[in-house]
């Protein structure tokens, strides 16, 4: 037990700086998203507090693993105030992965309904963004974009890497804070 405590107290911080993580993704220098986030951390209710609920609408589990990776010490989404919550009632953002299967369409609607406004939906992965390999079949819609749920931001990729997802979340944080309407807002791609 003592060795464990010692080991824990001496664990180095494994978290990589955001600038470094985003350097592979962002095109501009300095990264406008990061600048915006740093400037506005004290302003706006969603800066530094963004709660996510994940809705799997028929993905292949790769997007899920990348979402889970956001919580590991290397990406540590919590440093941005981003966290996964246990109930849609506590959530601000629904993260949709997958091409909306027939069996899950109702669950997606119910989850959206259960989330208090202001809320936003982030679609990640090719399947959810409508560029999936399989497309429409008898069992799935093939995209989350026309599922009746307004998607605010999309992150393409099969699956998108954790930094890309993180950028999508930062983007949503900014839009939500800008007082942008959460319904019918033009979908932004990351």
């Amino acid at each position: 037990m003592w060795s464990l405590i010692r080991q824990r107290l001496t664990t180095p911080i494994a978290t990589e700086p955001l600038e470094e993580l985003f350097s592979h993704v962002a095109t501009e220098e300095p990264d406008p998203l990061l600048v915006q986030w740093k400037q506005n951390i004290r302003r706006g209710p969603f800066y530094g507090s963004l709660h996510i609920r994940h809705v799997d609408t028929g993905s292949c589990n790769a997007c899920e693993w990348e979402l889970t990776a956001l919580l590991n010490p290397i990406y540590d989404a919590q440093r941005l105030g981003i966290d996964f919550v246990a109930s849609p009632r506590h959530a601000d953002v629904l993260v949709v992965t997958g091409g909306v299967t027939r069996n899950l369409a109702q669950a997606l609607e119910l989850t959206y309904e259960a989330t208090p406004a202001p809320k936003a939906v982030l679609a990640i992965g090719a399947c959810a963004c409508g560029t999936g390999l399989l497309g429409q079949t008898y069992a799935q819609r093939g995209t989350a974009l026309d599922s009746g749920i307004p998607i605010l931001v999309t992150v393409a990729g099969c699956p998108p890497s954790p930094p890309e997802i993180l950028r999508g979340l930062l983007n949503i944080m900014t839009i939500l804070n800008g007082g942008a309407a959460t319904h019918g807002h033009a979908t932004t791609a990351i």
């Binding site: 292949c60 091409g99 299967t101 899950l104 079949t137 008898y138 799935q140």
Partner: peptide, 11 residues
């Protein structure tokens, strides 16, 4: 189960 049934085999 089979919530994520995507119709992959037909596809």
């Amino acid at each position: 189960l089979f919530y994520t049934h995507r119709g992959l085999e037909k596809g």
